[in-house]
Every structure is written in C-alpha cells, then in structure tokens.
Design a protein around this nucleic acid. Structure first.
Ligand SMILES: [Mn+2]
Ligand SMILES: [Mn+2]
Ligand SMILES: [Mn+2]
Ligand SMILES: [Mn+2]
Lengths: 220, 220
DNA sequence: TATTGTTGTTAGACTTATCTAAACTTTTAT
DNA sequence: ATAAAAGTTTAGATAAGTCTAACAACAATA
C-alpha cells in the first residue's frame, strides 16, 4: 500500500488550494480543478480518507486532516522552491516554470529541496509572490489586497499574483509588469470596473476587472 | 497509447547499459538488472517492440532499434546531466546523486536539461567519469582500461568507475580516492589478483580484484 | 411539498505495470 | 541422443488511476 504517489500529492495540493479559495471544497470543484471526472475524484477521496489525510462523509464537503495538511504543505513547499530555483538559478522566465515544478515536486528527497532552499537563501516567496512554506511547514500569511479594490488616485505596489496561468504571465510580460512595480490608479470605469493605471512612467493603460482582481498589491 | 513513461525509459536505459556489458542482452539479465520478474520484463519488451524501440523475437536476445537507442541515449544524457548538476551546482556528494537523478531523468522538458548542460559548461563526463551524450545524441567513446590489467610498477590515473553503487562510492570516499588520482601499482598477489597500490603519497593499501576491476584508468 | 435540476455515487470497464504458478523451449551435460 | 537444467512464455491475478453510463441524493423553486 504505497502511502504517497504523484497523483495523491496532486490531489492534496488541489484540496489545499481550494480550501483557501472556497468556503466548501466540493467534489466537483476538485474534479474540475484537476481535470478528472467526478467518479475519479470520488474514488481518490476514498483512498485519501483511508490514509487519514482527508475528512469526508458521503455528499459532504471535503477537508484536509492535520496530517493531510502537513503533506499538502510539504508539496506546496517543494513546488514553490522548484519554481524559485528554476527562475533564480537556472534562468527561466516565471511563465515557464510551473509545469516543470509540477513534476519536480514529486521527487522523493527532502535533502534535494532543503538544498535548493539553502542555495536560494531561504526565500519567503516564489516567483509569483506566493509564500514558500518553511521546512517546519510554517506558511507566511500575507494580507495583500486586490488592485480592483484600490481607489482612484491611490498608489500601490504589485506584490503577488492571484493566478499564475501562462497566459496571464505572458500578458504581464508584454506589459512590462513585474513584482515590485508601483502602480497608480488614474480612473475607474463605472460600467465594467476596468481601471486606467500607470506605472514605470509610461503612458496610462487600461486593465479589465478580470486582470485587476488577480493583481495582489500593498498600498503605498 | 502513451509513447513513453518512466518505466519504459528505465527499460531502454537498462537495455542500453547491458548492450555495452554483454554480447547478448537476455530477458533474465534485463529482469535481474531492473529487479522485476521475468514475465514483467517479457511483457514490457512486447510493448517496446510495438513502439519499434527494440528488436525482438521469442526466445532470442534483445537489442535496441535506432529509434530505441536514440531514446535511451536521451535518458542517459538526462541522468548524467542531473548527477553532474547535483554535484557541481548543489553541493551533493557523488554517492548521493544517483537515486535523485533516477527520478529527475523522467522530467518532460528538454529545455530543463539543456539549461543544466549550459550552466555546467557542456561537461563531457558525469561525476563518476561516464560520458554525457551531447544534445545531438553523440556519446564520447572512451578507452580506459581496468586497474586490474595494469602491471606491477606502472603508474595510472583514475578516470572513471565501472560501477557507481553507493557502497563502492563510499569505499572510495573512505580511501580518499577520487577521479584524477594517480595510482602506482606496487605488487600483485598471484593467488587472488589483489593489488598493493599507493597514491597521494600515502602508505600502500591493498585492493581486491573486485575493486580493481571497477577502477577505470589511463596509463601515465 | 412536489418537481426538477445539480451534484455525487455506484457499477463496470480499461490501461499500465507488476506478480506467481505452470507450461514450454533452448541449452547443457551425460 | 536423451535427460536435466536453465531460461522464456503464457495464463491469470492484482493495484492504481482513469473513464462512461446509469442511478441516487440533495437543494432550489414553483
Ligand atoms: Mn506553480
Ligand atoms: Mn505535480
Ligand atoms: Mn547514476
Ligand atoms: Mn529512472
């Protein structure tokens, strides 16, 4: 009875991520996120319950047990360390690293990841601004707000991303937007909440609500 | 029909390695090397034949097709680059890297390995002295001889290892033997072919025939 | 509260990679 | 040339992880 496996680790990670996004993690949200069918997720949840990694009763929402959360955080740590290593030490762009990290995270060697951590100088965030859990599993809890919540005239600094899809990252690359960039809100369109913003002393641009919801910022 | 998989890649690599060790690669040599049962190897060989990666007729020896060899060399390249990267860029000892590389080699990103290659300065050999195939699949063919074939009074330089098992590497670490070390053959015991050797200006030591067979050297 | 639509479960099937036991071929030794 | 030993294949089973089709439960709403 193999305790862990890449598939199980991916489920744990998905449940962990969904727990931070939704009130209740449901089977269909989980299967949608992992792009598997409902029955597939259902049967995997049964295995995870068997391992005491999730709490689950038929037809009820899914949650991680303490042990399950510990496992999930371990994989999140590995994923984010891998992404950071790829960007900082191997010259990859932040839009290229997710899929590689998705595979690296399953390598069975704590030392491999602790060594990365050390070489990187124990970074607090990954290339997309997400916190990297430390070796003990402690996760830095951040309090960034969405750019979409900023008011006209305010100035903010881009700290993290609410999505790391390749398309979104490419969009940001094209606009020369990176973590740390200072953004000024020029105006907000009442009809669709799109924002006119400026940064890097460039001519103002317009960002849709969708974009602004995924830019996590700190007020300056 | 997934073309490749970690399991298939491990089989290709094992067949490739055995081809360089034996006249004929037989099913039982293969299953022994991979620590699987004969029927398991037999059924995998059928799949590999289906993919046109091996030549195989019932009861006859196994060989790689051109395409199979290409695939095998690709994985060998990835394994050896990973080992080299772990040693040179991540501070691992040569005895710690094999198992991690055994997992890394299956990551599906050519760029990941080409980037390692570049960062390492396109090394010709891995930490155990084995040649690293280049991006085009060309393998540096070396002509080292076994220490066991050296004659009394001769001086040689350790260039590569005929085995990279953890125990063997630990043995070499304990004796402060590393690639590049100059070794002088003091005497050979007629009974068991064990050799009295000296290196690093240390007091002479005795190496068994088993050891001397696995030390690949160049005459000086 | 009864109907309906959404969500979750069960049943049954498939693929890959593995195993053991039994049968069959090939090789080796008398 | 036979018989024994060694090596290989077939048959049948299992486990993980996936699927579709059909059915059941829940939640929303009329
Ligand atoms: Mn990622
Ligand atoms: Mn993954
Ligand atoms: Mn190795
Ligand atoms: Mn491998």
């Amino acid at each position: 009875m193999p305790m862990s496996s890449p598939a199980k680790e991916n489920y744990l990670k998905a449940i962990y991520a969904l727990s931070n996004e939704l009130e209740n993690v449901t089977l269909s949200k989980l299967s949608e996120r992992l792009r598997v069918s409902n029955p597939t997720a259902n049967s995997m949840i049964k295995s995870l319950k068997e391992l005491n990694w999730v709490n689950y009763e038929k037809y009820r929402p899914i949650s991680l047990t303490d042990e399950g959360k510990k496992q999930a955080v371990k994989i999140v740590r590995r994923h984010r360390l891998a992404e950071m290593f790829l960007v900082e030490k191997m010259g990859f762009n932040w839009s290229e690293v997710h899929d590689i990290a998705e595979e690296m995270e399953h390598i069975k060697s704590s030392l491999f990841f602790d060594r990365m951590d050390e070489i990187l100088g124990f970074p607090e965030r990954d290339p997309h601004g997400s916190p990297i859990p430390d070796k003990q599993g402690k996760v830095l809890h951040h309090n960034f707000s969405k750019l979409s919540e900023a008011s006209v005239g305010s100035k903010v600094r881009l700290m993290a991303l609410g999505s790391s899809s390749r398309d979104f990252l490419k969009f940001l690359d094209n606009r020369n937007l990176e973590l740390g960039t200072e953004i000024k809100v020029k105006s907000i369109e009442a009809f669709d909440q799109s924002m006119e913003v400026s940064y890097n002393s460039l001519a103002p641009t317009t960002f849709s609500r969708d974009i602004c919801d995924r830019l996590l910022v700190l007020p300056l």
